[in-house]
Design a protein around this nucleic acid. Structure first.
Lengths: 332, 332
DNA sequence: ATTGTTTATGAAATCGATATCATAAATTAT
DNA sequence: ATAATTTATGATATCGATTTCATAAACAAT
């Protein structure tokens, strides 16, 4: 690999001049410009990002933290972020946490070490104080994971209201025993809690009660959904819910699969509300009633915000596109 | 941020000794060991990855190239790779190419620049010679994208045979006018070509013909699938295929959606063969007949191979798990 | 007692870039 | 004509680690 030294030698100039050329400084004669350019081409030179970063502390890499890339909500979100970042000259580094604090910590370390210059967190495990500690090393943007009591820049949607409306829809449809799934554990401050609030508000407003047997934590995947369904089926008849609000379409699909296998009709036996409106959700044997998230906009806005933070500009978040929408189909 | 210098000063030792401590060199007295450890803790010191990399040329970052992360096949593959890499102390950098040569080139540049120490390519756009050029900068492993005429380390599955068997299954079921979708463009050397070979072999063996109206290139997504379906429906009746081999379950779903909307029964009007056996494929209104890929094993094997290459060890690929399997359901 | 190893440490060069300081020539201002 | 600026370039210190070389005890061998 050719280095800046080689280029300098080859062009019979100092490294300083070559460095100036690289950074578009003024005061380089047209003639030397050409000599440098030629030397670079002849030597097939590319500046070392590592060395540049060590010296200048400026980077072009943005980290993204998601809990699971296999969840289409996140893969589409990542997709959106990546497109937006790439078109602005930034590169993306993705890491999954699998709800693991240590993984999240590792990513924050990468920020501290300037491997990444900024971090977009689309999932969160640690408390806000810990995250605050890392803000001095580079901008952190929260994407769709509200952290109350914190002034970390965030792109938010109103998960509370959307959940409220969705559960209200269930209630209006006549369901009274509504179960609830969350990806979190109910204690954490992740966005689960906003949904939980909306859920509870709807129940309270309608004067309905919930039972602890109807609450399922840490459910993420199709398989988790299957487990939930099995548990429901094992409940005594009078304790069985007649509807369930799930944390994602993945979970909803798993529940429906098991119910169908046991000849329990959805939504007659159990109404199932999804979340995310994934591409396949309309194509299932029982098309999902679900809540669509503005994935595209979430990605664009959080990336724009991140870039403006990195470049010291200001950015006004366009909240108008960050709207959740209830999509009524057949599962509830 | 504390540096190695600060630690040295704080422990009243030289940077060299601290560096030795960091790298587990022998010949450091127990007493200084403790002093260094204490100093590090007090200063909350973390070695700079960037600086370490600049000096030692060794890194812990592995790049992954996929064409689209939103395709579940790739997101599950990435998931598998990430798990395996993480458990060995490596970090993953993911980039999407969207079939774009330039994106691929950018990732190869990251290898040249030692931002990543190795690259796992799960999709490929460039020709083998170009890729060869970058091998001097770090190991490159091809994952499920056969490049013939190349000795780049690769993890392969027999896409040709699997396709052959799947198409044979269609033929045995009585279909004679079989259409074909590919993610590539038929000219490239990607894994599309292996499938194409298998497809053609099955047709030739059965003495069937294909028509250029039945060949669809560059189809990847659900939307691409819808387009294909529309095109088929616009064909004159006698030119319409009675079965279609698709490049992914995503495409298959899109086709089925449009067919269903036009009251054309699948598989009676058109049998649809998927590819990938995605988690939702069994849950669709018409469960997909498809080919399961050993995603998990592909990830594990390619990562193990990469790590052994990175660490100068040898690794024997366990081919026994890299088996494709035809899964018969209802769509064909 | 003298030489040869082993153990333990520090000084300084190095990796490949950037940034500061110094300097010299060319240009403009007084 | 001299001073002040602008333009153009090079030397060199620096970023934060690793690594080589040198050195000095401590211990063993002759």
């Amino acid at each position: 690999m050719a280095t800046i030294k080689d280029v300098a030698k080859h062009a019979d100039l100092s490294v300083a001049t070559v460095s100036r050329y690289l950074n578009n400084h003024p005061y380089i004669s047209e003639e030397k410009r050409k000599r440098i350019k030629n030397a670079m081409e002849e030597l097939d030179y590319t500046p070392s990002l590592v060395a540049t970063q060590l010296r200048s502390k400026k980077g072009t890499m943005i980290g993204i933290l998601v809990s699971r890339i296999t969840n289409p909500f996140f893969s589409y979100l990542v997709d959106s972020i990546e497109k937006q970042a790439k078109s602005n000259g930034y590169t993306i580094l993705i890491m999954q946490t699998y709800d693991d604090q240590d993984a999240e910590a590792k990513m924050l370390e990468l920020l501290k070490q300037q491997v990444i210059s900024g971090l977009i967190m689309c999932s969160i495990e640690t408390d806000s104080q810990t995250i605050e500690l890392y803000r001095e090393y580079g901008p952190i943007v929260l994407c769709n994971v509200p952290l109350p009591d914190s002034d970390i820049p965030q792109i938010v949607t109103d998960q509370e209201q959307a959940t409220y409306e969705a559960v209200n829809y269930l209630i209006d449809s006549g369901y009274k025993k509504i179960a609830y799934c969350t990806g979190g554990n109910l204690t954490a401050s992740g966005h689960g809690s906003a949904r939980t609030k909306g859920f509870e508000r709807a129940l309270v407003t309608a004067n309905l009660i919930t039972k602890k047997e109807w609450v399922f934590k840490q459910v993420h995947s199709i398989d988790d959904g299957k487990l939930v369904a099995e548990k429901i089926l094992q409940l005594p008849k009078d304790l069985q819910p007649d509807a369930i609000f799930t944390s994602s379409d993945l979970v909803a699909s798993g529940i429906i699969e098991v119910m169908t296998k046991h000849q329990k009709k959805v939504p007659d036996f159990l109404a199932v509300m999804g979340f995310d409106n994934q591409p396949f959700s309309s194509l299932l044997s029982i098309p999902l009633t679900t809540i669509a998230q503005p994935v595209e906009a979430l990605g664009v806005e959080s990336t724009n915000l991140m870039i403006s933070l990195l470049e010291g500009k200001s950015y006004h978040v366009d909240q108008s596109k960050l709207i959740l929408q209830l999509i009524k189909r057949e599962s509830a």
